[in-house]
Design a protein around this nucleic acid. Structure first.
Lengths: 218, 218
DNA sequence: CGGCACTTTGAATTGAATCAAAGTGAGTGG
DNA sequence: CCACTCACTTTGATTCAATTCAAAGTGCCG
């Protein structure tokens, strides 16, 4: 279902068959851990359904969410032998898991696939640079607006374009993604709702004033 | 000179010869622009000497430095058809430039090289995740200490291990990298020097208390 | 109905930003 | 060789955006 937008989009039939043979379909319940920062990297994952929270922890408990993986996204590309961040399920999640050995063999055998994965990695890097700009230089309101527009765009690319942005993650997750506290996120949501910039609905927000939001994000 | 630590380290002799044929050695004076965010991506660059500042700008002038490229580093990997950030020389810089056409052809012909570039990209992504943690969740003092240790480590990998960390960039560059103001960076340097954690020397700092610094960074 | 996890709101505090003013030092030209 | 400039850096005083501390409010689920 997510193949059209994922790595698989550009594969030949025989490559797809090979991939299918090596993929281990797995699923996780809400809150389950896919893998933990620092643990040995056994598998690479391709999310097929649901949303995954990716985060790093400091020894004193401070948390930075480095991303939210949506269907089609790859996890574990940036590993040496240990995962660089933790990943757990937000709601029910389905993935295709590939053992590291299978992944390595596949990549060596199919340069075509490697090229596609490399495109993925460089796209991720571009997003990471934008997130640095956001974390280092934007105000709380700008952070939240950029986040909402970013999520809207990502759902749209997955074939779910809507003025209502689904937000399956908690306020704390959003705060830890944007480098804010939960209170600041909550207050900023409330202020944007009072402005009539957004409307807060169960499980997400409805974009009411996209012009203003895009102007702020620009 | 930088080949041992760069992409070229794992190439065969004939691959190296091919690379050399396509590389256009270029050099830039202090402050020169290699390329600008949003402009058409003509070239990929491999830095051979000097330091390059990589940054993004917001329309109102706010700047985020997304990285400092040292000898051996690649620039322009994460491009679609326009550069995602600007790059300019800090001091004199030498690079090998590759036209986009040459780069694409090379990558298609040599999966071996692609694999190496992909490793580079995923390493960059890991660093970007660490920078997100730093920007989102660390204090000014922690940011500066992590930056100094990071630079020390990078110079060390290039074969210049030293307790004196060379800092060719300005305080403003450091501030824009760490998501701080120049005043906060200056004050924090002064405080660390008063602590005897570091000693400020022309063009850099000397690490005086690495134990404390590593403890803060952990 | 009560418990629990998450969210919102309010008041007080604070770390870093802003505003303002010297201080430093390399390069230039008289 | 010294005064002058210019860019960069440091230091001080004040302000403010976001955090922290504190307390309700909400709604889902057994």
């Amino acid at each position: 279902m997510v193949r059209l937008v994922s790595v698989c989009a550009s594969l030949t039939d025989d490559e797809l068959a090979l991939l299918e043979q090596l993929a281990m379909p797995t699923h996780f319940a809400s809150g389950d851990t896919l893998f933990t920062q620092g643990s040995e990297a056994h598998c690479v994952y391709n999310v097929t359904a649901g949303v995954v929270r990716l985060y790093k922890l400091l020894s004193d408990g401070r948390r930075q969410v480095v991303g939210f993986a949506l269907p089609g996204d790859f996890l574990g590309l940036a590993m040496r032998d240990a995962y660089g961040f933790s990943a757990d399920a937000i709601g029910d999640v389905a993935v295709c898991a590939f053992s590291r050995a299978a992944y390595t063999a596949l990549v060596d055998a199919k340069p075509h696939l490697l090229k596609r994965l490399h495109e993925f990695a460089t796209h991720e890097l571009t997003l990471a640079h934008e997130q640095m700009m956001l974390l280092g230089r934007r105000t709380a309101e700008e952070k939240l607006i950029c986040f909402l527009l970013g999520m809207q765009q990502r759902w749209a690319r997955l074939g779910k374009p809507s003025v209502t942005v689904q937000l399956p993650m908690t306020r704390q997750d959003i705060a830890d993604f944007l480098g804010l506290t939960i209170e600041t996120v909550s207050r900023t949501f409330t202020r944007l709702a009072k402005d009539k910039t957004i409307l807060i609905v169960p499980g997400g927000v409805r974009v009411m004033n996209p012009e203003r939001m895009h102007a702020v994000a620009a």
